[in-house]
Design a protein around this nucleic acid. Structure first.
Ligand SMILES: [Mn+2]
Ligand SMILES: [Mn+2]
Ligand SMILES: [Mn+2]
Ligand SMILES: [Mn+2]
Lengths: 168, 168
DNA sequence: CGACAAACTTAGCGAGTGCTAAAAAATTTT
DNA sequence: AAAATTTTTTAGCACTCGCTAAGTTTGTCG
């Protein structure tokens, strides 16, 4: 194979066939495409924290039957004040339903987001472990990586993890 | 192989050997460890933008010989005012050296960061392509993922990409 | 019941990152 | 060299997400 779509090279191939380093940054993408890359990252960062809060609240509800702000704060590693403000925002966004001074619940929409985040998180984690990463490191990396992985990539990660688990 | 370092399991293995779903979230990590995961993500986010700016400036210097604020703005997809403020900050942090109204240069420290970021970025990108992700998607995912990948994971990604490139 | 502790809320500060609008400097064109 | 254009900087606004400090509410326990 050695070269998917030729056309730009009429005859004198540089001989060092292609990969062998390839630099990946031998040439910069056109400015607009480049900008779209960064825009995607900025966009992911807008929802990242929200997803983690919703996912965590869902996990707490599921595992301990109740999601209290203190526990969220402890697990997020932030102050209760920070959690309080975030909870208000999640409520306004329609993910959390709660009464003052009472513990937290997810709306239908919140439950949907929690389920999806949890699934995505699990796939990334299993993938990293299948790759050979130790558990503690995999958990840390997964927490950050999960928000930046497209569905296409996720699909491939899942396939890889599954194949690695049985024989192939 | 099936189990690298045993020792924690003296005899009564849970029989449903292990993987087979495993849920990954069957049980939550202890609060302090959980908090450390999120802390790592927050920490990564602090340097993320800085790394991308420095990497981009380095790339521009290398590819077009000059790094102008306009080009940085165009490629980042951000206003020139945003770039100007960020450049001042990068200067204060010791990554960029520049004169008013002149184009941008990297300090020794900045060059180190650019080189390392570029390398890490390239490995993640090559890895995603090796996994089977199409180029455009791989570029987008890599831009976000690169900042959340530990050295251990990076090492494994590189190995995977290399193996996939030749035979195995 | 009353007191004390724990949990939650609110107010206000600081840093970071986006924006627009307007001014200043540099560059290019005429 | 003057004018026009482009580039850079500055000022000021908005929003997010940390924090501490101070107040409210709730829950527990003697
Ligand atoms: Mn998560
Ligand atoms: Mn991120
Ligand atoms: Mn990068
Ligand atoms: Mn990046």
């Amino acid at each position: 194979m050695a070269s998917a779509k030729m056309g730009s090279m009429s005859r004198s191939e540089p001989l060092r066939s292609r990969n062998a380093e390839q630099k990946a940054t031998d040439v910069l993408p056109p400015p607009e495409q480049h900008a779209r890359q960064y825009a995607a990252v900025r966009s992911a960062h807008e929802t990242e924290l929200i997803e983690d809060y919703v996912e965590l609240i869902g996990d707490l509800l599921e595992h301990s039957g109740e999601a209290r702000a203190t526990d969220v704060a402890a697990r997020m590693g932030v102050s209760q004040a920070t959690v309080a403000r975030m909870v208000r925002r999640l409520n306004e966004l329609g993910y959390v339903s709660n009464e003052p001074y009472r513990s937290l619940f997810l709306t239908e929409e919140g439950r949907r987001m929690a389920a999806w985040s949890r699934e995505r998180h699990a796939i990334v984690l299993q993938f990293l472990r299948a790759l050979g990463v130790d558990d503690a490191t995999a958990r840390i990396d997964a927490e950050g990586v999960e928000h930046h992985v497209s569905e296409k990539t996720l699909e491939l990660m899942q396939r890889f993890a599954n194949e690695r688990d049985r024989g192939t």
